[in-house]
Design a protein around this nucleic acid. Structure first.
Lengths: 188, 188
DNA sequence: TCCGCCATGACAGCTACTGTCATCACCTAG
DNA sequence: CTAGGTGATGACAGTAGCTGTCATGGCGGA
């Protein structure tokens, strides 16, 4: 066995989620998290920029997957359909482990600072997707609008999926939201 | 003259903006702000929930104006057009004092925490507009999607308006973005 | 075998933010 | 005119998030 127990970062993530669920985000101190993980406060801040970031460790991977979905879509696909493909990629990730996702989301919803950080992650995803669209030759205005609109659809679909029991999949919600969006923007 | 100099809140807002511009947000301490305003730190936190909030003092009024625009739109107006009316209301507010808006925006753009807070304000506006739409009898899904889409359009139009010289108004940018959005979501 | 790397620990320090009590001009009732 | 309540501010101590800096000591390569 090495000098330290392995996977310090993962232990911190798990300890943090546990404590945030048990006692709430703001009733949990970083000292408590590191105590449970068998590390020191200083080490926590070496792995995560701040106390919130530990809950969003997976957002980088999600972003990569979505960007990849945009990059690998067939060449002739319309921007909105490329975006839909990216959202479907994200949706399967959530759908797979609905339990953990819902638990994590309940922690986030209970705290303003965490919702704030969640919005930043969505904005980052939007920017990355807009970049990926531009790389496909999509114009700047269309790329940004498609990405932002995609985030709008994702937000609404995700929220409805979380709230409802398991009868409809996130994928289905995304489809319904996209249809509704088309109805909203259709010329009268 | 009263016991204290008047308009403590306004003095804090002005001192904060000045210092944020002069030295940057994170190189400014609350103590410095209150020193310039002739008050104490404790008083700062009685007027503003945190160090960022002082930059967003006007967001409440903006939200009220937009909600009011939704509420007072003619009864038969389609949701997307109601939303456009609300965005136009917001746009005149920005257009009026473009100088201060741009200065404030440059402070926000230079700091992640401030961009984070800006996103929260937009989300709050979105929720308020969705509520206002529901009060008009618009269904929940349509209301949310219309509001979120409106924010998407506002974000993109605002960003382009800020970046460009003054040749096009924010109102014009909003129109162009809405057209582009319709092109994006149009069925192929 | 030795050396340098690097993840972690130890510790001091700053600053955002909070709880609590004191102060004292102003307002209002009587 | 006076007494007492009100409310904005000050004073002060304390917590916790976050940072800078140096020390430690297994591990891997030369």
């Amino acid at each position: 066995m090495g000098r330290w127990k392995p996977n310090a970062r993962g232990r911190l993530e798990q300890a943090a989620l546990e404590l945030y669920v048990e006692r709430g985000y703001d009733r949990t101190t970083v000292a408590e998290i590191t105590r449970r993980a068998g590390l020191t406060e200083r080490t926590f801040f070496r792995h995560f920029a701040d106390k919130r970031e530990v809950l969003f460790a997976g957002s980088g991977a999600l972003e990569e997957l979505c960007v990849d979905a945009v990059a690998t879509a067939p060449g002739a696909t319309a921007p909105i359909d490329v975006m839909t493909a990216a959202l479907d990629t994200a949706s399967s990730l959530f759908q797979e482990r609905g339990d953990v996702v819902r638990q994590r989301q309940s922690v986030i919803d209970a705290n303003t600072e965490l919702r704030e950080r969640e919005l930043v992650k969505l904005a980052s995803l939007s920017a990355a997707l807009a970049d990926a669209l531009r790389l496909r030759g999509v114009g700047d205005l269309t790329a940004r609008l498609t990405a932002e609109t995609g985030m709008a659809v994702l937000k609404v679909a995700y929220e409805r999926w979380i709230r409802e029991p398991d009868d409809r999949t996130l994928h289905q919600h995304l489809g319904e939201c996209l249809d509704a969006l088309r109805a909203v923007t259709a010329r009268t």
